[in-house]
Amino acid sequence: MSGIRVRRFLAAVRAALVVIAIFVMLIPIIWIFLAAFKNHVDVYQLKLFFTPTLDNFATVFEPPYLLGPKLLNSTLVALATVAVAIPVATMAAYGFSRFRLIGETAMLVVILATQFVPAVVIILPFFVMFRDIGLLDTRIGLILVNLAIVMPFAIWMIKGFIDGIPLDTEEAAMVDGSSRLGVIRDIVLPMAAPGLLTAGIFCFIIAWNEFLFALILTNKHSVTLPIGLALFKGEEGDLWNLLSAAGIIIMAPMFVLALIIREYFVRGMTMGAVR
């Protein structure tokens, strides 16, 4: 074979490998996706070809499963977590980015380190405290502990964005007589807006997918979607078609959000250790 042919052949092999690898990576998602549209009988027969049905998506919202309130809880908890985290993190990010503070490195390291504290360590004292003050099984309680996991990401991510905004515009405005708060409001916030949105979406995904806190703190009124998955156990074991439909409801919105911010996913997760 000539050199060109060998190269073409290798390129085709590589392209095939790419397709196979991605297919393998998507199998569990495809599998859930298929099962969500199967009826009860088809799930248990492993069919690849079947008449799709939307019944499962209706059933999960009916008694005894009632996914509706859980969907509401998940949405409210994640939204409120983001609504508190982003403004607080933005202020701090600006402070850390633009000024030298006493103990700055220490504070940043502690904030970084909190991301690595096992969730199970955080939840033990909160469980005791919430039991004593009546915050168990409330959305407020869940929002409070969720802040523990999103704050470090939010601060570090937004700080990265603000670090990238050139100082000149700010300084020019200050020379023209703007106050510091005016500069933050009129220059920094508009320029950092895409970054704030990205950080907000990132934190929303984390709060939405959070499992351990909700498992321990909720049992009836404030149960979130991931915990709701445990409901789909019947007398005869797991109800896979319903589990899959609930799974789609949990993951589909996150897929959309993840695709929107995919450029920043890596930077967000590594907190700037990889640029």
């Binding site: 991605i22 998507l26 569990p28 998602i29 899959s244 993951m251 996150m254 897929f255 995919r262």
Partner: peptide, 25 residues
Amino acid sequence: ARTLLILPFAMSPALIGVSFRFMFN
């Protein structure tokens, strides 16, 4: 391919657990 790769990562770990229990039933 790189775009599609983001999908499994947006999946909640609890759901990953469920889907693998399903596949290994």
